[in-house]
């Protein structure tokens, strides 16, 4: 299948990680695209929460951010941080936290706060917002991002949102939820060993080459002897993405 963009493979792979009937807290960007795709295909009973205080909206136009009122259209509930992140996330009823990030390490720790250049000069970005709360409290965390060596790092420049910090388990860290579950990139799907929490390659996208994935991953990555291939999006998934979910390419590029 030619002409399928990397972002479309990412969005479809992300959507497939969502099961019908689950409750998900969604970050804006590709997490939002993937969750909308899931809801419009195999997961119509998905409960779709935005940190700002919106439940199950059905945007007609692609929102340009979490605070865009396009996100409020046809919601089933308008509410607050306290409700979504306190009474759903911290209460323990959120199955999936779906996030983007600037950097990730091999234990699924996320950095959305700052980057350092080689001279040590710091550049600040958006910070946590709901990211730390979601990563700390959701039952499983799915992260979606571009596969670049400067983003998939041995150590993140700032640990904003914890995964398995230092390879330790979540209870030992004082955290709720089961931590990082999937890292979806434009090359591969990566999981985390249930015992050691180390990153392991689960599948490679049809367009990607294994040596590129190894080269562009800054942390140790366990490679199985046989690497499965990630399924491509179906023509209907591609149509939904291109024509309905993000026709202007705000997130799909």
């Amino acid at each position: 299948m030619s002409g399928v963009r990397g972002t479309e493979i990412m969005a479809a792979a992300g959507a497939r990680e969502i099961r019908d009937g689950e409750v998900v807290v969604v970050g804006i960007g590709l997490p939002w695209v993937a969750c909308v795709l899931a809801k419009r295909t195999h997961a119509p009973r998905l409960t779709f929460l935005l940190e700002i205080g919106v439940m199950n909206a059905e945007p007609k136009d692609t929102p340009v951010g979490v605070a865009d009122p396009r996100n409020f259209y046809r919601a089933t509930c308008w509410t607050s941080f306290r409700d979504v992140m306190g009474m759903s996330l911290q209460r323990g009823v959120v199955d999936v936290g779906f996030l983007g990030t600037l950097e990730i390490d091999g234990f699924g720790n996320l950095n959305t706060t700052l980057l350092k250049d080689e001279s040590g000069k710091v550049r600040y970005f958006n910070g946590s917002a709901g990211g730390n709360d979601t990563a700390s409290l959701a039952r499983r965390v799915i992260v979606i991002m571009r596969h670049e060596k400067r983003k998939l790092r041995q150590a993140v420049a700032h640990l904003t949102s914890p995964g398995f910090v230092g390879g330790r388990g979540r209870r030992e860290l004082g955290l709720r939820g089961d931590g990082p579950h999937r890292l979806i990139t434009d090359n591969a799907i990566i999981g985390f060993d249930p015992d050691t929490h180390a990153a392991m390659l689960l599948s490679l996208h049809p367009v990607a080459r294994l040596e590129d994935v190894v080269e562009n991953t800054g942390f140790p990555l366990r490679i199985p002897s046989e690497v499965p291939t990630t399924p491509l999006p179906t023509p209907e998934e591609v149509r939904l993405l291109q024509e309905e979910i993000d026709p202007k390419g705000i997130y799909l590029g």
């Binding site: 911290q90 700390s136 860290l173 955290l175």
Partner: peptide, 21 residues
């Protein structure tokens, strides 16, 4: 803010633990 609004001097939370934040 919620603690402040409720007239409490502090509030427990389960976020931020094990983070550099």
């Amino acid at each position: 803010y919620l603690a402040g609004a409720l007239g409490l001097s502090f509030i427990p939370v389960k976020s931020l633990l094990a983070s550099e934040v």
